[in-house]
Each structure stands twice: as structure tokens, then as C-alpha cells.
Design a protein around this nucleic acid. Structure first.
Lengths: 238, 238
DNA sequence: ACATCTATGTTTAGGCT
DNA sequence: GAGCCTAAACATAGATG
């Protein structure tokens, strides 16, 4: 809407007959606020809710746009916790601790500490690399990070993923067939049993006791998974 | 400035002499961006710098306005650390730990490790986990680790990989078409030039100097990659 | 890499439901 | 609270120095 009004208007001809009236008909709705604690409790809560969402959104955007790793922890005045992290909160906190620990100690760090810190830094870097690797691959599969690649790379990637897909489909088909054959076996067994029972019933028909077979529906209960992505250990989980 | 233009203008009198011309003289300066990793490195760095400042400002404002306690940790893609906390970072992190340790996922370091506060050990464990995660995924795509999965999981995996394949193929086709059209353009340009040169040659035929055009063959040199898997940052590399 | 500018795009204060 | 609306305030993409 703003874009419609925001453009410039030129009057191509001006006899003094015409007059341009600037109309500020709406009363002022919003004024600049100063950054200090909001007095009114409800207003403060509302603002907290609104701005909190804003900050989290900005943090996520920054992480996505610029490939940054971000951890954000917010406690409301009432003690409620809100948090976000682009990867693992723990990992980020640990890295932070490792890096800012140096500045804690003003005294001379011992050789021991130096060594530790050194390998710590290395470990930290390796972890970062692994995390990024995982994230990049995710992005490539999700189709985000594909514009930067040239034909050679795309073809290579396609072959790789296609191969993976084949493997998965193969395994799936295999599993499927096995499960089907298993079920068929079960079925024939049951039918056999069923027939036997019917015969028996016919023999002793004096009681009038009709036996019906219930198609046991839980024979595939093992294919009921809880959280698949968790069990798969896939990077897509987050 | 915007406020001056944003108001409404009424023309109080209109003989048909007057004319209001809407003028969109300026070219579009800014377009809506989508939230995905910025391709261009420098643009990404600039955006990181700008937006980082924005997020930190927002966090501080939220803290001040609403009396909230906030900890914000940001690692740039290059590993540089930026952080802010409204009070004590350690205190906030500890509080966060205390509250969120219940929801500890399986993949996270054990409570024992946490209690020992041994960040080195923890980092080490996280690295191992990440590596395992990556390796598992590799194996799944390579078809090694698929027997353990049941139908549901396999189908989910298939969908995921299939989706990824689609993305890749799409990107590839896109790139391919673009490259082809570019080459065609170049071709027609060259042919035009060629024709011109021929004409010239015919005109000044006295010298007998036949001009031949060399079809520049390196116009696609950008699609020559060195080690693809490395540049892709794929887990398949090892 | 940083500062500045400007024209947007986005957030949000204040109001209402 | 949570959601919606509007217009003012604010953030920032893209360009430039």
C-alpha cells in the first residue's frame, strides 16, 4: 500500500486555480519510545511477547543468511525460559566457555593450560567443521545451496544422491517383499487352522457354536515407529 | 523524508487542464530477500556485520524494556565470537542448564559429563557424536546400514532422498539450460561478427588477406572444477 | 573493511477484539 | 494473554565513497 502513495506526483500544469492540499487527517498513532523499563505491567508483557518473537526471528535469519552459529537464551521477568540455537546449544556454550575462559584468568596461564587450550581450540574447530559439513549437506539436499555449484558438481551430486536413492529403494523393496511373504505365510497358516476349526465345528455342530476368524491386524506391529528421524540418526532432525 | 511524501494530496479543483503524473523515476533499489544462505561471500559478510549489530541491539532493548535476562552468543562463519548478556553469561547459562537438562536428547553429552564440568571431555564427546551421525548418514546413503530399518523408516528416508534428488536435478537442468542459452547467444554474436568480417574482406579483396575466425574455446572455463567433493563439502569425501 | 546514503521492507506501539 | 489492524519507527539491501 505504501508503495502506491510513496511515489512522486508532479502537476504538469499550474494555473493558480489549482491547489494542492496536504491532508494529515489521521491523528498520530505512535510515538517514539525511549529504551528504558516499561512502567505499565501489561504493556511490558505485551511488548516482551512481541519483541521476543522479533529477536528470535532476527537471530534465526542471521544464522541462515550468514551461516553463523547462534545461541540465544531469554528469561522473562517472571522467570520463564525461551531459547534458540542454530545447532547445539551445548556445543555453542562450550565453545563460548572455552574461548572466553582465557580472558578470565589475568595471571599467566600454565603450560598445562596452554596445551589444553590448544587442543581444545583444535577440537572446537573440528566440531565446528563437522557441524557445518552436516548443515551444508542438509542444505544441498533441501535444495537451498545448489545455485553456487557448477554443472560438474551438480552432476556428481546427482549421481551420488541417485545412487543413495537406489540403495534405499532396493532395501525398501526387499523389506516390503519379505514382509509380504511373511504375511502370506501367516495367512495360509491361519486359513489352514481356520479350515480345521470349521471342520471340527461341523462335526460337533450340535452346540451351534459358530467360530469366526478375526483377521489379526497387529501382525505388522513392528513397523510402527515412534520418532523416525531420531532413530535414523539423520541430520534432518533439527 | 518519507513522512513528507506519505501524506495524501487532494486536488481541490480540476479543469481537465491539469494532469497528475505518477513518476516512478528511480530504479528499484531494494528487493525483498529470501531467507537462505547468501551466495556472495562479501555480501554475506556485510550482511552479517549489519544484521549482527541489529540483533544485538534488539536483544539489549528487549532486556532493558522488559526487564528480561538475555544471553546471546554468535559465532561468525569464520569462527569469530560475539556475545552479549544482560547480566552474567555464566549465571544465565547455568540457569538454562538447570531448566533444560530434563529435555536432554539422547545424542547430548551425559549428565555426568555436565556435572563434572569438564568441557574438554564434553567437546570431545560431541565431536564423536557428530562424526558418528555423519558416518551413519553416509552408510545409509551407501546402502550399508539399511537392514536395520523398518518399512516406515525406509519410506521416510526414500522420500527425503527423493526430494533431495529432485532439487539437485532441478538445479542441474536450470544450470544446463542457462549455460546452453548463453552459448547460443555467444554463437550468434560470433556468427554476426564473422559475417561482418567476411564482407569487409570481400570489399578490400585486393590484398587477398583471408580473415578466419577462431572459435574461442575457453568460454566455459568456469565449469572446470578441481576436486569436486572437496568443494562440495560433502561427507562422502572420506 | 567501514561509513554513509536512500528507498524500500520489516517491526512494532497503540488500539481494538 | 493471543490475534488483528494501522501507521510510525526502525532496519537494512544495494550502491557509493
Amino acid at each position: 500500500m505504501a508503495s502506491g502513495v510513496d511515489s512522486f506526483y508532479f502537476l504538469s500544469l499550474g494555473f493558480s486555480l489549482l491547489q494542492v492540499v496536504k491532508c494529515d487527517c489521521m491523528k498520530m498513532v505512535r510515538q517514539k519510545i525511549q529504551i528504558k523499563k516499561i512502567d505499565n505491567l501489561t504493556a511490558r508483557q505485551v511488548t516482551f511477547s512481541k519483541r521476543r518473537r522479533g529477536v528470535f526471528k532476527k537471530a534465526q535469519e542471521l544464522s541462515t543468511l550468514c551461516d553463523a552459529e547462534i545461541a540465544l537464551i531469554v528469561f522473562s521477568a517472571t522467570g520463564k525460559l525461551f531459547h534458540y540455537s542454530s545447532s547445539s546449544m551445548m556445543q555453542l556454550i562450550e565453545r563460548h566457555r572455552g574461548l572466553s575462559e582465557n580472558s578470565d584468568k589475568l595471571g599467566q596461564p600454565s603450560l598445562q593450560l596452554l596445551k589444553e587450550n590448544n587442543s581444545y581450540a583444535m577440537l572446537s574447530k573440528m566440531l565446528v567443521d563437522k557441524t557445518r559439513e552436516l548443515r551444508n549437506f542438509n542444505r544441498q539436499l533441501m535444495g537451498e545451496e545448489l545455485q553456487g555449484l557448477d554443472m560438474d558438481e551438480l552432476i556428481k551430486l546427482e549421481k551420488m544422491v541417485d545412487g543413495g536413492l537406489n540403495h534405499v529403494v532396493e532395501a525398501k523393496n526387499d523389506k516390503c517383499l519379505k514382509e509380504i511373504s511373511l504375511l502370506k505365510k501367516k495367512e495360509s497358516k491361519l486359513m489352514e487352522e481356520n479350515a480345521k476349526l470349521k471342520k471340527q465345528a461341523e462335526k460337533s455342530e450340535g452346540t451351534g457354536n459358530g467360530i469366526e476368524q478375526s483377521n489379526s491386524s497387529d501382525c505388522t506391529s513392528n513397523s510402527r515407529g515412534s520418532d523416525t528421524s531420531l532413530r535414523l540418526g539423520l541430520p534432518f532432525a533439527n
